[in-house]
Amino acid sequence: MGDLVAIDRHVTPPADPTPAEAIRALGFDPDRVRAVVLTPTSVVAIAADYPEPYIRPEA
């Protein structure tokens, strides 16, 4: 009977993409969007220069 051979099955998983990489992979320029919303059927983004309204704090 031969010697047992230990097999190194350790596999280094690929690094998770950064948020910017993930946004690029969805087809958007991360510098030009402030949010990306992914649903089962579509992906849409909100532009970085979206005109944000002022929300007055409640008294």
């Binding site: 030009r32 059927t41 579509s42 992906v43 849409v44 983004a45 909100i46 532009a47």
Partner: peptide, 14 residues
């Protein structure tokens, strides 16, 4: 809302 927009759209105003 998403079905009202083309997939890949960037919303510039609402």
């Amino acid at each position: 809302l998403p079905p009202a927009l083309p997939s890949g759209a960037t919303v510039t105003g609402a």
